[in-house]
């Protein structure tokens, strides 16, 4: 396909708009999750989503209605396991994730095997985003970003030093629950649109890219959002020009931006060490 064709297709616009809003949403939440060492929560909850979508299909209900409450409850389960069983985030995510995927396989087996619907809910296609899904992405982004705007300092303080945050009168349990529930809702609604792989990579890679060179917390969030949107736009354009799978191309673009930031940091650090000598 010619690059001139690029702007003739509505699906491209939808992919760019929905993708950019999802990128903004995931990268902003991702900064908090990565700093809390909950980076893999995207994958973990996606596995739960797999189980719950299988249940939805078995019960012949719209999977979102089944998935949303189950994934939200599972996200709170991860939080409670961390608090009460004194587990680190990775272990708590691992437990919930493996139960989720095992449950999904059992339910899919009862339903007569894995079918196309189940896969479409897990591996969504950014180029197949409908108009409704585009609106959903925009609305979800605005809702989640509003929460982050209003609770920004509570989230910052709780993420940096939870004990001190408690003695500042911040209801840290509520803030932790809020953060994890927003993540759960984001994961359920975005994996249908862009798939597990892209959702998970947009939660982790922009945040770790920003952490290579950001100066300050707000600065980190701005850089992470910019990196995420840039990777979606460049990924959609590149995949269109050289005819590659779009989701995977966006992930690779994300990774290339991370490598660039990492190389920059390495050079700057070496230069600083040399200057100090």
């Amino acid at each position: 396909m010619e690059f001139a064709d690029f702007f003739r297709y509505e699906f491209i616009y939808r992919a760019l708009v929905a993708g950019s809003f999802i990128a903004l949403l995931c990268s902003t939440l991702g900064v908090f999750l990565v700093l809390r060492r909950l980076s893999l929560i995207g994958d973990g909850l996606a596995h739960v989503a797999f189980g719950s979508v299988a249940l939805g299909l078995l019960l012949k209900q719209h999977p979102i209605y089944i998935s949303l409450p189950i994934v939200m409850l599972s996200s709170l389960g991860i939080l409670r396991l961390m608090e009460r069983a004194r587990l680190h985030g990775d272990a708590a995510i691992g437990i919930v994730s493996s139960v989720g995927i095992a449950g999904g396989i059992l339910l899919a087996s009862i339903a007569g095997g894995l079918n196309v619907d189940l896969f479409s809910y897990l591996f969504g296609n950014i180029l197949a985003v409908s108009r409704e899904e585009t609106y959903l992405s925009i609305a979800l982004s605005l809702i989640v970003l509003s929460f982050i705007f209003f609770f920004y300092n509570d989230l910052f303080s709780t993420t940096f030093d939870e004990e001190f945050a408690k003695t500042s009168g911040i209801k840290t349990k509520r803030i932790n629950s809020l953060c994890i529930l927003l993540t759960a809702v984001t994961i359920v609604l975005t994996i249908k649109v862009v798939g597990i792989m892209l959702t998970s990579s947009l939660l982790i890679l922009p945040a770790v890219t920003a952490l290579q060179f950001a100066r300050g917390f707000k600065n980190t969030m701005v850089i992470a959002s910019t990196v995420a949107i840039l990777s979606v736009i460049s990924g959609v354009i590149t995949s269109f020009i050289i005819n590659l799978p779009t989701g995977a191309t966006i992930v690779i673009m994300n990774f290339l931006l991370f490598l660039t930031a990492f190389a920059y940091k390495t050079v700057v650090t070496k230069h600083a060490v040399t200057s100090d000598r």
């Binding site: 700093l35 993420t159 030093d161 500042s168 009168g169 952490l211 300050g216 707000k218 600065n219």
Partner: peptide, 15 residues
Amino acid sequence: FPATVREVIASGLLS
């Protein structure tokens, strides 16, 4: 953690 010294000190004001 990417917070600056100013951001950390200012977080004391949240109470």
